[in-house]
């Protein structure tokens, strides 16, 4: 079979199928990863000491463990205590857990950076503590966390490939299947790599535009390299 036919009739369609699954994985994980991240960060920073400790421990364990091991626990481990997920669901759960722990760190950094006066001013207007957090502190903190959150989103795109290790045939899996079937490893994985590079590069440009859009005039952009 000639190269052109291989690329256009076999590899390309397979990768596009895989890409759709990859996008589904990301779409199902990212919103919950963000929401859970906010919850963890707020709980850690403003919650009851017990809740704060739980949130801290959660981040500690998730960040300390390889994502792949986490995925194994969810998919191969939990059935032993009667909890069974499909590979897709287990992957999404793993991504949410991982993504939320890293997001929480950036959001907490944002929360810490908001000056005490903001909270005092909100409460002076008669807001409760939680109202003040929700409508005054958090919107500012999230803006400051955006560079970090964008980074984590890009990591999510890349690490979604680990779903293949749970047999989800996403982009990496689709490439692997074609490579193994036709013994065209370099070509297949190079094509997969191109798709990822395009995906990551487009996202990078998009989040840069987003970052510029949401900047409040007169505020300084948080330094993305200042990891917490």
């Amino acid at each position: 079979m000639d190269q052109t036919a291989f690329f256009f009739e076999i590899l390309f369609p397979a990768l596009m199928q895989g890409l759709i699954v990859t996008l589904q994985l990301i779409a199902c994980s990212a919103p919950f990863g963000l929401a859970l991240g906010v919850a963890i960060a707020v709980g850690r920073q403003y919650g009851h000491p017990v809740i704060s400790w739980l949130c801290k421990t959660y981040v500690f364990f998730i960040k300390g463990t390889p994502l792949l091991l986490l995925l194994f626990i969810l998919y191969f481990g939990l059935p032993s205590i009667g909890i069974t997920f499909t590979a897709f669901v287990a992957s999404v759960l793993g991504f949410i857990l991982c993504n939320s722990a890293y997001n929480a760190e950036y959001i907490r950094g944002g929360l810490i950076s908001i000056k005490e006066g903001q909270m005092v001013a909100a409460q002076a207007l008669g807001m409760t503590r939680w109202q003040a957090i929700r409508s005054v502190v958090l919107p500012q903190a999230l803006r400051r966390a955006i560079p970090g959150l964008s980074n984590e989103f890009i990591y999510l795109i890349k690490y979604s490939s680990l779903a293949y290790m749970l047999t989800v045939i996403e982009l990496a899996g689709a490439g692997k299947q074609v490579a193994t079937k036709y013994f065209l490893y370099t070509e297949s994985f190079a094509a997969v790599a191109v798709v990822y590079l395009v995906l990551v590069s487009i996202t990078t440009v998009a989040v840069n535009i987003l970052e510029k859009r949401v900047v409040v005039p007169g505020t300084v952009r948080a330094n993305p390299s200042a990891q917490l």
Binding site: S161, Y164, A172
Partner: peptide
Amino acid sequence: LPILILLF
């Protein structure tokens, strides 16, 4: 690139 793809 994902580390998995680089390894493959």
